[in-house]
């Protein structure tokens, strides 16, 4: 059995009377691509924040990369990478400056930074753009760069919050190639998306409805369970009963 890197047990977050995340229990294995789906307002963001050590749970247990979400948030932050559609890179810094900045805050040495940034720029084919402002890059490139920066310090787990929203279909697939590569290297991927075809690329997915994980399995098994042709139908079947939204 492979190593478990995310383990939650009845993880709950309350805001007053409102239970944003209700007794979430799941495990994610090392190197797994775990899709975290749910309707808007189902509690995905809240759950993700707790897992990243940004928000203290109201009750329940969770360990991330072996660290406790209550007491060891600093260690958690050192061992994870994070990327979201909204914030990823500084638009007014160049590609290189961004790489150096984010590498720097994760404590990479100058020497490491030098080799890593050269490697990264090579891998993404950004040689000509290295000294250009990030703002001038097309969205797809930004997202690819931002993912690479998020895994620059070789975290155990990387959290991706809707990383491909609005990206063209070809670049979206290139982005997923990067995700696969990282997973092959043993990085665990925790990803949210609204593209149901991307849900199929995950090893396992969970679907959250009204703060509760309603389903968790491989895409194949989910489709079988719900007698659905594709993930879209599975999602619709589960989420249409949702009472609340954001």
């Amino acid at each position: 059995m492979s190593e478990i890197v995310i383990k939650t047990d009845k993880l709950t977050k309350r805001f007053g009377d409102f239970i944003a995340a209700n007794e979430i229990t799941f495990k994610v294995n090392k190197g797994e691509i775990f899709g975290f789906l749910g309707a808007n307002g189902a509690g995905k963001t809240t759950a993700m924040r707790m897992l990243c050590g940004l928000s203290i749970p109201s009750s329940g247990q969770a360990t991330i990369a072996g660290f406790d979400v209550y007491k060891q948030t600093e260690q958690i932050k050192k061992n994870i990478g994070y990327m979201s559609q909204k914030f990823s890179l500084y638009e007014d810094l160049t590609v290189l400056e961004n790489i150096n900045f984010f590498g720097g805050i994760y404590g990479l040495t100058d020497k490491e930074l030098k080799t890593k940034s050269a490697q990264l720029i090579d891998q993404l084919g950004l040689q000509l753009q290295a000294k250009k402002l990030v703002a001038s890059l097309p969205l797809g490139w930004k997202q690819k760069l931002s993912f690479s920066v998020a895994v620059l310090h070789e975290p155990k787990i990387v959290f991706l919050d809707e990383p491909t929203g609005g990206v063209d279909p070809v670049t979206r697939r290139q982005f997923w190639d990067l995700i696969y590569d990282a997973a092959d290297r043993g990085v665990t991927i925790f990803v949210t998306t609204h593209y149901m075809d991307e849900a199929e690329y995950c090893n396992r997915i969970s679907i959250m409805v009204d703060g509760v994980i309603k389903a968790l399995d491989t895409p194949r098994n989910l489709k079988d369970t719900f007698h659905a042709n594709n993930m879209d139908e599975v999602f619709y079947e589960l989420a249409r009963s949702a009472k609340r939204s954001e």
């Binding site: 808007n40 999602f235 989420a239």
Partner: peptide, 13 residues
Amino acid sequence: DEPTTGVDPVSRK
């Protein structure tokens, strides 16, 4: 202009 961006599949439908 992009009324359904960032909206979940159910609401999009």
